[in-house]
Every structure is written in structure tokens, then in C-alpha cells.
Design a protein around this nucleic acid. Structure first.
Lengths: 246, 246
DNA sequence: ACCGCAAAGTACCATTTAGATACCAATAAA
DNA sequence: TTTATTGGTATCTAAATGGTACTTTGCGGT
């Protein structure tokens, strides 16, 4: 069944531009699950044929929906309805690696990188003595153009030579210095986003989110990482596979 | 019996790439124990013949599953299904044990026990044919006097003789009938409580919660349980210890 | 007359998917 | 040790897809 047969033709006489009509039609199709998560849209050239418009017009319509985070483009592959990202909770992978494995492009916007001394909370959770030097990282994490999480990381200066070492991936930087954690304790709980957090993530205050606190350890048992990540509840699923139940 | 005969042919016309179709087919075969732990897969060249695709396509499919940790390659020997390792996650599954470990007394209040036919969602998630009979259970779970979670469970009638069998523990009842699940897939996400849910749990509508959906499987791969649990975000933390490396 | 916008047309580029073929490296069995 | 089998890797080809850059046309407002 072709999309145009379901959505109906566009109105050439309408004052609303064609690309906006198409955009609205597709947005409706997505919201009513005519196009479900991860479904591929017809190719741009096919859409253009189906709706009897030019490919440029199709692209303008898709541009808008990509901007809204409803669609995802993969060059050479197609355009897809954005689905929830599924994160395997039982696997100790970094956000960057995770997104790449899912075919999405991760990037971060740094809010701050700084150096200082542990505060009492960090000293407690990381098992460090007061006065120990730490690096602190604060950033927004994106998948493609979609903000996914706010992240606060604390790392002892002993395991990293400088803040500049950390570019796109904290774990990569730790790996380079031979200090990638091999074990971690994670704690997860539900939170509501504050106004500040919501604005950074492009959601509404009071929207649901997931706070994951992670302490990472080396084989030796030494703590090398304390990270608090606030994930968007509407964009993230955590999946676990279990083999023993009780 | 060849794998392709069990899994069916790939769809050349599907918008989903061939290697992803194959990947999903194999993942299903593993999750349903058609391919058990430590089983060897057919050689890449044989898989290519069986499914009428090139070896490269087979390798791309296997690459993904190796990345997910489901398969292990041994050059010169073969490709094998990995044994599971996420033992620590068992903690996530048992409400009762978790509460006891925290020094609290768990108990449940039944809201309903009923018998009926699967709805489409259940049929899909449990892999049952439409019209199959199921038992449904709905209860509130408490820690001491504090309501902690709402639970909806669905179980095929085939694995349980009657609803009356289920008293304090669904798993105990399944155990008595020799149908206790040995493996499960869990999915977790952040939600906001509706007015109905909030009232039952003694929280405010719009408060944050965690929805955990669990599908439980027998050794044979047969699905025996679909449970949705809504946990209070303010009263429950999920803790996990991770050992897996990547 | 000029400008900005919507729309269409055209061409070419980069990436992904899929395949074909060949050869190398590790393993296991004879 | 030898041989066959297995996974690992490297080139190619080709088609389909999204990405981008240009040009042209018509409309409406200034």
C-alpha cells in the first residue's frame, strides 16, 4: 500500500505550501502509527513520484521532521521513523559506542570541563581521601541532532593526564591511559526534570527521566569514575536479559 | 534440520536490509533456544547458501550479534552461541528478595485474578496465537505498609492449572507446575503516573515512576509470562553490578 | 524593476547495501 | 605432519539512497 493512497493527495490550490502539507501528512502518519518506529520511509524520489511533487519539496518536508526529531536519515540507506533507543543495562559500554553501534551519530556539547578537589560526596562514593584532585565534566549528549542525556562525570586526576584528553568519549580517554573501568556499580531511579534540565534537553519541566549513577572501578578495585546521567524518559529504553530468576 | 527451514526465507523486497533480517532471525533463534548456549552455528559459507545471500551479508549479520555479545567467533573452528553471564541482574527481578534484603517485609494485595483470551499486544509479546487462553493477575506490591509497585501479569492457561494456584508468588505457582521461567527479557523506562495509578500507590498524579516489562521464558524457549510493573520512582532504586567488558 | 519565496528541474557526490572472487590464518581431524 | 574446514581480510563491481549545488519559473509584495 502506497503512502499517498493512505494519506490522500496534496492540494495544489491550498495557500499552505506543498512541503508543509506533506510535512503535516507525514507527521500525522507517524503519530497514528501508520508509520511505526524504525519503519523506513519510501525513498525521497519515490515520495516525490507518489505525491507528484519534486524531490526538493519532499526534502524540505523531511527536513522539518528530522529537525523535530521524528525522522532519522541515513545516507545510502534511507529515512526512518525515530524509535526509542534501547540501552542494554547489563553491558558496560559508553554512550558513544552505544550510539555508533545503533547507527546513530553521537556528539557532545560541553558545558564545562574543570579541575578541582573532591567534595565530600565524591570522596565518599569514589573512596578517595579528602583533598584528592579530580576532573569534572559536564555535557549534553546527543544522538544525531536529538539531545538524549545530561551527564556529570568526576574522575580522579591520577587516572587521566588532563581534561584536554577527553574529547568525544570519556571511556576512550581512560582506555588510552590504560584506566578503563572493568567493573561498575549502577543505580537507576526515576526523576522529573527540573526547568533547567528540561531546557537543556529540549523537553518540558516535569517530564519523566532516568537518573543513572555509575561508579566505575579498575580490576584493582580502584575507583576511577563517578557519573550521573539524566536520560530522557521518552527517548530511552533500558533492556536487560536475565538468566536466573528468583 | 537446516536453520533456514526453521527460520524461513528472507524477504528480498523488504525495506529492511538482508543482513538485518538475518540478524533478527538468528537473534530470535537464540532467544527461543532453537540455538542454545555453546551451540555451533553453521559455517558462514553454509549460512550464505542456506539463505541464498552472499557470505559478506552473513558476516555483517554475525558482526552485529557478536557485537551484542550473543555470538563468539573462533577462527578455524566456528561461530558459537555465548553462554549468558548477567547473573547479577537477577536482583532486579525479585521484588520479594530485594525487599527482604533491605530489611523490609514484602506483601501483595490482589486487585484481580481473571481468565480470558490474549489481546493482540499479549499475543505479540508472548508469541501466542490469537484466541489462546490466559490468566491475568493485577496486584499492588507493598514493602511493610508502603505501596511500592503496581503489577499486571499475563500467563498462558497452558502453564498453570488455575488462577487459584497463585497465592503470594506467581513464580512459586509456576514452579509447582514445572513451568518456572529460567530466562527473561526486561525493558525499563521512565513514565509518569496516571491518576488511577497514583491513587493506588498513594502518590500524586504526574509523579515519576519506572515501568518494567518482563517476558519470561522456559528453557525450551516457550514464553510463559508477561508482566508490567510500575514502580514508585521516589521509593525504589535499581542497583546493578556490571562485570561485562566491551 | 526588484526582491524573496515556493517549486521544479538537473546533475553529480558520498554512503550504504549487496554481491563476487580471491587469498590468508587458525583450528581440528586424519 | 598433512589436509580440509573455518573464520579473517582485501579488492573489485553495482545499484539504491540521501546530500548538495546549481539553474529556472512563477507568484506576490515592495
Amino acid at each position: 500500500m502506497s503512502l499517498s493512497a493512505i494519506l490522500g493527495p496534496l492540494d495544489d490550490a491550498s495557500p499552505l505550501p506543498l512541503y508543509q502539507q506533506l510535512q503535516r501528512a507525514l507527521r500525522d502518519a507517524i503519530s497514528t502509527n501508520v508509520l511505526g518506529p524504525d519503519d523506513a520511509l519510501p525513498a525521497e524520489r519515490d515520495l516525490a513520484d507518489e505525491f507528484s511533487v519534486s524531490r526538493i519539496t519532499v526534502r524540505k518536508a523531511l527536513d522539518g521532521l528530522v529537525g523535530e526529531g521524528l525522522l532519522m536519515r541515513k545516507q545510502g540507506a534511507g529515512t526512518f521513523v525515530t524509535g526509542r533507543v534501547e540501552k542494554n543495562f547489563a553491558k558496560l559500554t559508553s554512550f558513544s559506542e552505544d550510539m555508533i553501534a545503533r547507527g546513530r551519530k553521537p556528539h557532545s556539547v560541553w558545558l564545562s570541563k574543570s579541575e578541582g578537589s573532591v567534595n565530600p560526596e565524591e570522596a565518599l562514593t569514589l573512596g578517595l581521601s579528602p583533598g584528592t584532585g579530580v576532573f569534572r565534566f559536564h555535557r549534553i549528549r546527543y544522538a544525531d541532532a536529538l539531545p538524549m542525556a545530561l551527564e556529570f562525570s568526576t574522575v580522579p586526576t591520577a587516572v587521566l593526564s588532563s581534561v584536554a584528553q577527553v574529547d568525544s568519549s570519556l571511556y576512550e580517554a581512560l582506555e588510552r591511559e590504560g584506566n578503563r573501568p572493568t567493573r561498575a556499580l549502577q543505580r537507576l531511579r526515576a526523576v522529573l526534570f527540573t526547568a533547567d534540565q528540561a531546557e537543556l534537553l529540549g523537553v518540558k519541566p516535569g517530564d519523566p527521566g532516568l537518573l543513572i549513577e555509575r561508579r566505575g572501578f579498575l580490576k584493582s578495585g580502584r575507583a576511577v569514575e563517578f557519573t550521573q546521567s539524566y536520560y530522557r524518559g521518552d527517548a530511552y529504553d533500558f533492556v536487560a536479559e536475565l538468566n536466573t530468576l528468583s
